[in-house]
């Protein structure tokens, strides 16, 4: 690992992540997420599904995989149009800052609006990181953004939310390790699809997803 990983996983990296709640805004609206306990549950299922898939894709993209083929695999694992749009929007944001932060020819091989995980893998490679690092950043980002979104929306104690995220670290590591070892996971959570699609139709949403 190099310090580039810290930059890549930093919530302050201006790649647009702060406007995405990863389903948290809608989970709160539907009463699925109400407190610290249900936040932990929500983050766990997100990490185990979309987090694992993102970790696998990021690792493969970092490891020199065919980026267009990986982007198609990401689409196949993301049938929800709302989730696809959110992923590609964040991918575009990461490419914008990544190109300037870590110049590399690899950026030009990406499709126009890449899935976030694919862009993350390219960013990791461009920053001198390896597939395991890319997987770790993807897995971590799958919970860190949603955690702070819940903190903002529910006015939760930030220390509690920080503790929840920190205590998920072994699970984040485990997801990253398996993503590298087992190839491309396809774990999905239909609940996240439903939350994303209902959220996308709302006019009173604060988060983009």
């Amino acid at each position: 690992m190099t310090a580039a990983l810290l930059t890549l996983a930093d919530s302050r990296l201006p790649a647009g992540g702060h406007a995405h709640s990863g389903g948290v805004e809608q989970a709160i609206a539907m009463g699925v997420l109400t407190d610290a306990g249900s936040l932990t549950t929500f983050l766990r299922r997100r990490l185990a599904t979309s987090g694992a898939v993102a970790a696998g894709l990021a690792a493969a993209a970092c490891g020199g995989g065919d980026l267009a083929a990986l982007d198609a695999e990401a689409d196949a694992r993301t049938p929800s149009p709302a989730l696809r749009a959110a992923s590609r929007q964040q991918g575009r944001g990461l490419v914008r800052v990544g190109r300037r932060a870590w110049p590399s020819a690899a950026w030009d091989e990406l499709p126009a609006l890449p899935h976030h995980a694919i862009a993350l893998g390219v960013a990791a490679a461009a920053g001198g990181l390896g597939p395991r690092d890319a997987a770790q950043a993807a897995a971590y980002l799958s919970v860190s953004g949603p955690a702070t979104a819940a903190q903002r929306l529910l006015a939760m104690d930030p220390l509690t939310v920080a503790a929840i995220t920190a205590r998920l670290a072994p699970e984040v590591d485990d997801v990253a390790t398996r993503a590298v070892a087992d190839g491309l996971p396809a774990a999905t959570d239909p609940l996240l699809d439903l939350l994303a699609e209902v959220h996308a139709t709302r006019k009173d949403r604060i988060f983009a997803s």
């Binding site: 549950t41 185990a48 999905t188 959570d189 609940l191």
Partner: peptide, 22 residues
């Protein structure tokens, strides 16, 4: 050869995304 859909759904005790309240 182009993937249209690839998903794995886990249900039941022991599956990581099978957690209350859903």
């Amino acid at each position: 050869g182009r993937p249209l859909l690839h998903t794995t759904v886990g249900l039941g005790t022991g599956e990581p995304a099978w957690l209350p309240p859903v």
